[in-house]
Structure formats: C-alpha cells, structure tokens
Design a protein around this nucleic acid. Structure first.
Length: 637
RNA sequence: GCGCCCGUAGCUCAGCUGGAUAGAGCGACAGCCUCCGGAGCUGUAGGUCAGAGGUUCGAAUCCUCUCGGGCGCACCA
C-alpha cells in the first residue's frame, strides 16, 4: 500500500507544479529524519530552484498553497531549506495497516525465476561458507514469493567433478575400501569425508604420479561405469543426504535437485557443445599450452580484454569436460533453450524431485525460466561471466542478459576463531577457509553449539518445560541466530566469522527479534487474562483521536508501513541485508516503546487502545519480515 | 600487469537513486525489575567518514588519482 500511496502523492504534486510553474518535474519522496517533521518530504522546490531561478523556500511556500493533497493527508508544511513536508492522518493510516496486506499486492504475471543456490560439492561436510550461500538464496526465494513472483529453487550437485573424484581416490586407493564397506560407515558420513578429503590433497603432494588416479577416476565418474563410478554415486548420495538434513534444520528447502551426472548421461553437454562448434564459439587447439583442448576464445569480448590468457578450456585434452562446459549446457536448459529435458524422479525420503536419466512419467514442469539467478560466491565471477558469454556466443543475448550472478563475498574465519580452532593465521587478518586443507567450521557443528546454548538460556528462564518443547524452541532460536547472522551484513563484504559474535543472542541478533515478538504477544495474553479486550480492530483504531498517536508511537507505525518498499528494493537489488536491518529497526523501536508505554496498566481506555494498536501493527510488520528471513516465532523463550 | 570488492567510534557493521544534527550492536563507565519477561531499557564517553583533488546550493554518498587490505585472472569448482 505504501508504494501506491507515495506514487499518488508524487503525481498530485507533479500536477500542482505544472499548474503553478508550467514545468515538468517528477518529485521524489524522502523520509524526514524525525517524525515531528512529517511522514514524507518532497525536496522538489530545492530541485526546481535552479531552473526557476528563485529561492527554494519561496517556491515551496507557493506550492504548499497551490497543492491540494488527497484524503489521508492531514497537513502539508514547508520546512528547512524548502522541503515540502506531508503529515498523514494517523488514525486512518493506522487502521489501514491493521487490515491491509503489507507485502505483495502487485499481481504481476511475471514469468518464472529459477534460483540456483547451495550447490555444495557432495564430497565433504557443509561449512559456514556454504551456509551464507544457502541462507541468502533461501531468503531471496522467500522475498520473491512474498512479492507474488513464481520461483523455482534448484540445488545443483556436481557429482562428477574433481572433488568427488578425490574422495573416491581416498576410499579406493588410500583406504582400500570396497563400496560395501563405505556404505557401512557410520554417520556422520560427511564429517568422515571432510577429514579424508584433506588427507587426499596431502597424499597427491607426496607423489605427483598419483595424479593419474584422479584423472582415471574422473573419467569413470563421467562415463558412469565401473567400481569408481559406483563409489562416486555412493559418496555423492550419502553426503547430499547429510547436506539436505543440515539445510532442513534451517528451514532451507528446494524444488529440484539437479545432478551433473544427468547432464552428462543425457548428453546435454554434447548437444550444447555441438552448437558451440557450429557457432564457431569453440576451437580445438593444435599447440601451445592448451594443445589438445577445446577452448572458448574470449579475446574479442570486451569484458575479457586485458586478460593474460583470454581462452577458457571447455574440454580437456583427455576428453573430460570442465565445469564451465557443463554449466553452459545447464544454463541453456534452465531457459528452455536446449531442446531437451531431464527425466525426473521423486525422492520420497526427502520429499522432493531430482533429475534422472530415466524418470517418472508424470512430474511437475521444471526449467523454462524467464529469469535465472545463480547464487554463487564472488570468487567465481569470472566463471559466471564465461557462462553468460557462452549464451551470447550462441546468439541467446536476451537469456544472457537475464542471467544474474548473485555474487556475495566469502566467509573467512576471524583471527580469534582461527586461533581457537588451532589454525595458524597472521595477526589481525581473517583466514580463508579451505575444504581441501580441512580449514573451516562445519555447519552442523555450529548449529549444535547454537542449539546447546539456546537450550541453556531457555531452561534458565523456564523451569518446567517438556523435553520436546525445549528442543523445538532451542532449534527455533538457533535458526534465528544463524540466519540473521548470515544475512545482516552487506553481501559485498567479506564475512569474518567469529564464534563469540555468532553465538551472541543479544543486541543485533535473531533472538532479539524473536524476543520482541514474544513480548508483544504476551501483552495480548495478559489483557485477555485480565478480562480486557486483547486486540483492536481497524474500525476502532480509525476512531481514535489523532493526538493519541504521539510521535514516538507513530514512528513505529511509520516504519512498519515502509516494509513492502524495503522488500521490493531488497529483491530487486539482491541486497537482502536491507530486510534484516529493517527487522532490527522495528524490534529496536518496539523495545524502546515497550518500557514507556504500558498497556495493561494504563487506565485510560483510548490511550490503552492506541498503544495496543501500535504494538499489533508492529507484530504484523515484524512477523512478515521475520518470515522472509526464515526466522520462526517461538511461543516463549 | 588487468579486473572485482572493502577502508566510517577501541572492535563488528548501518548510512537508500547526493539533502535536514553521521547511527546501531559489542566492549567501557553510570543507572533501571513491588509494575505487560532484564535475551530488555535509559544515559555518558568515543568519529580529520583512509588521503588528496573535482562536480554541486549541498558529498560519508557521485567522478579522478594516491595509499592500505581482500579476492579473482587453472586442462579445481
């Protein structure tokens, strides 16, 4: 409702400017720094001063007299250097916020957006870097859905890549285990692989000749035949199952799991590759350092000019395919441009669909996107550029334009945390994580610690809780703490992970948001218990006197009204920290008011009702926002 | 060398397409529970917004350069 309201005001003002001065101006609306200065401010007179060669304040005075704002506006005043400040009719506005939806509304019949996120190599445990990806991706999905845009969530599994190959080498060549033995290994299997993977790296370094085992294994994985391929499938399946479990703890889910092995089995790559050849976008190198490889030359593309080596290998000299090659095929499929589809199988244990070489007869439609968002960390920007260049090379410029790389900076370990975990780090510098070296914090370990701490905190405040309820509440609080931590920082900033900070449930944290909701809801409960009306309806709110909404209360109502605009902006700019900040702003404003504006103990019914209505509006706003962040609302805490 | 990101309070970070007095959290210090839950609130101290130019009525914000720091530019992903 906010955006529509703002637009209407701007249009009315624009008409007034035209009538008064005979010039076209598209007024922008700002939010005044304090509510005493009004609810919206138009600096139009400041902008017009130059063209009209008059003092801004004079122009503003004249506009204030000429403009007849719509119902819902109580007053227009000139302030400061020449701002035109608009004051809303508070009771009427509040009543709308109690009744109307805060988000969405704009029923745009947009096409499907495919969001790809998580994408963890299925060869080791997920770490906190992967969590940033999954949380950002899932939050984006929640925002898009709240804005009524059709979304399909895909989690791409590179089950035929070098990383899985390395763990297979670890099992087969280092540990000499059979497939049956590996199948019998106890959980947590992904933790076991975490250690094994870092051992493989060291093992290769001891003897360079061992590299051939990696190549042979990779070949077998791609062909899908042989014992190593069998082992690869087992490892990928077991680790993926663990990853999905980790994500489920956080409320992160998917519509489709896409397996790279199916891209190969169904010859997606060869289809795409044939087109690249036809288009002359790839060539076979006869000599030089890439002799025997099929490369995509990028020297002519302005984006890649200046690179030392502007050619990208698509097919290696041994005939195996690089990730970029497979990803171009995948990206084509996402847009429905490949002319071929996957098979699909239902995965009952996980309750989701996954690709297959041969699938079920009936399944929902997948792919066919109008827009694609790939959530991938910023270190892969170069590769994502190449994938887009591949689409363009095939003439799919529109698809390339609608492919968005949602880039975020990596998660590193703070110096204190690196030291705590026994990793050497230079003083004062964050330490980059490395799966290959086994440096990192496992996602499940962090979640376990968060839940453990949450359980202690809850138990200290609530004596007689059932074991099951305690567990559920602890999980809700841990989820809130972690998700908020991952989304509150701007995506363009490296996140220095620090245990103390991540485990904090105070200040700007997820639990702080939850606590404010619990408090707000308790007010209604206490009112009901005391035999007073536990909530205020929209009509009753509209009937309250304007003066009852003092500036401090009003500020909170005003902030809730802006929610839809914040979400819109977050989704369109992919800056999801805006949503987290907004939630924090709401909670902080509420907590501050809470102490000064008692409801239960207020004698005056009108004042009591005003405060209650304000807190109800707050709860509506924060609930909607927390939902987008995947932060659950606990019963108590 | 080329490209991307970052530099704001002791620490971690906000600061929207330039606009009214640069804000939070943590930490420090001083307070607040006979009263809707103290995972909270109130107050104090703490800033040449890395530096230098430029654009503008107006710059933390836009442009240029310089200095720090991170990350890319593989037959890994």
């Amino acid at each position: 409702m906010w955006s529509v309201w703002k637009r209407d005001l701007a249009q009315g003002l624009s008409a007034a400017i035209r009538a008064a001065f005979g010039v076209e101006h598209d007024p922008v609306a700002e939010i005044p720094p304090r509510r005493a200065l009004g609810d919206l401010a138009f600096p139009a007179a400041l902008h017009l001063a130059k063209t009209l060669r008059r003092k801004p304040r004079e122009i503003a005075e004249e506009l204030a007299r000429a403009w007849r704002p719509p119902a819902g506006v109580r007053e227009v005043r000139v302030e400061g250097a020449g701002y035109l400040n608009v004051y809303f009719d508070r009771p009427a506005f509040a009543a709308r916020l109690l009744a109307e939806p805060l988000l969405g509304g704009g029923a745009e019949d947009a096409g499907k957006t495919v969001v790809e996120h998580t994408n963890i190599n299925p060869n080791k445990a997920a770490h906190i870097g992967h969590l940033r990806n999954a949380v950002l991706g899932d939050t984006l999905v929640r925002c898009l859905r709240a804005l009524a845009r059709p979304v399909e969530v895909q989690n791409y599994i590179d089950d035929t890549g070098v990383q899985v190959a390395d763990v297979v080498v670890g099992f087969v060549d280092i540990e000499r285990r059979t497939v049956a033995e590996v199948a019998a290994l106890p959980e947590p299997f992904d933790f076991y692989c975490w250690d094994l993977y870092s051992r493989v790296g060291a093992w290769y370094e001891e003897d360079a000749a061992r590299q051939h085992l990696r190549r042979e294994t990779l070949h077998e994985l791609e062909s899908g035949r042989g014992e190593r391929a069998e082992m690869g499938r087992l490892v990928a399946r077991r680790v993926l199952t663990r990853h999905l479990g980790t994500m489920a703890r956080l409320g992160v889910g998917y519509d489709l799991i896409t397996h790279e092995s199916d891209i190969l089995a169904l010859d997606f790559f060869h289809l795409a590759f044939a087109r690249l050849q036809e288009a002359g976008a790839v060539r076979l190198e006869a000599d030089g350092k890439n002799a025997g490889c099929w490369v995509m030359p990028l020297a002519d593309t302005p984006e890649f000019a200046g690179l030392e080596d502007p050619d990208k290998v698509i097919v290696r000299s041994d005939g195996t395919i690089t990730y970029v090659g497979k990803d171009i095929a995948y990206q084509l499929w996402k847009f429905g441009l490949l002319g071929k589809d996957f098979g699909y199988r239902w995965w009952p244990e996980q309750g989701l669909w996954q690709t297959a070489a041969e699938g079920a007869r009936e399944h929902p439609p997948f792919g066919g996107a109008e827009r694609v968002v790939n959530v991938i960390d910023a270190r892969q920007s170069y590769l994502q550029k190449i994938v887009r260049a591949g689409l363009s090379a095939l003439g799919h410029h529109e698809a390339a334009r609608r492919s968005t790389h949602f880039a975020y900076e990596m998660v590193a370990l703070s110096p204190a945390t690196a030291r705590l975990l026994g990793f050497a780090s230079e003083d004062g510098k964050a330490l980059e994580m490395s799966g290959r070296k086994g440096i990192g914090v496992k996602a499940d370990e962090l979640l376990d610690r968060l839940e453990g701490k949450a359980r202690e905190e809850i138990a200290a405040r609530n004596r007689e809780l059932e074991r099951e309820e305690l567990r559920r509440l602890a999980r809700q609080i841990a989820t809130a703490a972690l998700r908020f931590f991952m989304v509150k920082t701007t995506t363009t900033r490296v996140l220095a992970f620090d245990f103390d900070e991540a485990l904090s449930f105070e200040g700007d944290s997820g639990p702080y948001l939850q606590y404010s909701l619990v408090r707000a809801r308790n007010i209604g409960r206490r009112l009901a218990a005391a035999g007073l009306e536990p909530e205020v309806g929209a009509e009753a709110a509209a009937a309250l006197a304007s003066e009852l909404w003092t500036d401090d209360l009003w500020e909170l109502v005003h902030a809730v009204a802006r929610t839809g605009e914040v979400v819109d902006k977050a989704a369109s700019t992919l800056e999801l920290s805006l949503v987290a900040r907004h939630a924090l702003d709401l909670a902080q404003a509420f907590h501050a008011l809470y102490h000064h504006h008692p409801v239960l103990h207020e004698e005056d019914p009108a004042l009591r009702r005003t405060r209650l209505a304000t807190f109800q509006i707050f709860a509506r706003g924060l609930r909607a926002t927390a939902d987008l962040l995947g932060i659950p609302e606990p019963e108590r805490m």
